[in-house]
Structure formats: structure tokens, C-alpha cells
Amino acid sequence: MLDKTPSDGPDAAQRPEADTVGPYAVPITLRVNGMTHTLSITPETTLAQALREQLDLTGTKIACDRGACSACTVWLDGAPVCSCMVLAIDVGAREVTTIEGLAAGEALHPVQAAFIEHDAIQCGFCTPGLIMSCVALLRRNPRPGEDEVRTAISGHLCRCGTYPHVLSAVLAAARAAES
């Protein structure tokens, strides 16, 4: 709905200060999962909202909207961040990767496959965020110990209690990649 820019808003050129943005919608460019999108957002729009509401990438979930649960985890240039704590206009040229960008076509990422195999899923609402953090961990540390996996997911909240199966899934995926 945000793409319906109020037409009665002044142009940037008419604004009191040229480098002031808002409160009306502004155009931005987002690079997401290898594709470039141009969208129009109000300045307070978070990356999580822009992904979900404008780009229909609803795999990224919002549960607290204030950086307390990590359900909204995506990567910015490969590093996991809470997308509810990032303004879309601040993303700039950085590459956004979401859960939708992880599988190569129909082939699941090995961590995604391990989550299914180990049943590291119950309701699944926290799952996309958890997977983004776990894959990021294996990219920077292909052979983590259990304690390192716990640290990597320590900011995530899973109310259903999938943590034991998440730990076994990630450790198994790391072992499988090694052999």
C-alpha cells in the first residue's frame, strides 16, 4: 500500500531543505537476492516492512519490531542484521539477501535441508530468521562447535522450543559439508 504515494506531497525541489527527506514517500533502489528493485517508501519504512509489504518477500517475519527476537534476520552484504532495525533508505548499495534467496532454484541450501531432516521446525515462524543466522555462521566458520552455534543463535527467540533440533541440524550440516 505504501507505493501509493500521496499525490499532494511537494516535490523534493520545493522542500525547505534539499537534503531533507519525508514525510512523503521517496524513491529508493534496493538490491535484493540479486535483483534490483525501485520502490517508493516513506522514510520511516524499515527494511523488514519494505521487503514484506512492497516486494512481497514475506519469508522475512516481524515478531517484535524492535530488535529483540531476530525473526526478521536478513543479510546485508552477507552479514546478518535485524531488518526491523534498519531503515530501508539506509540500505543504499548494500546487497540484501533474504530467506527466499538462499535456495538455488528448487535445491535447498544444506542448512535448510538439515532443518527439515532434524525437525528443527515447529510452527516455523522463527525459522527463516534462524536459518539466515545459521547459514551466515557456517560461511564464516564452517566447523563450529555447539557453543559457537548457541552464540550465533542466542539473539533468536523460538517460542516453540526448536533449539535442540536447531543445534543438531546445524552441526550435522557442518559435518556433511566437510565430508
Binding site: T98, E100, A103, L108, I121
Partner: peptide, 14 residues
């Protein structure tokens, strides 16, 4: 499982 690990699963908020 595949729908839930890829973000394809449709929750009510989606």
C-alpha cells in the same frame, strides 16, 4: 518443511 524453510509458507500475517 520445504515451505517453512524457504519462506514460502503463508502465515496469516502474510
Amino acid at each position: 518443511g520445504p515451505a517453512k524453510v524457504t519462506g514460502r509458507a503463508t502465515f496469516t500475517v502474510d
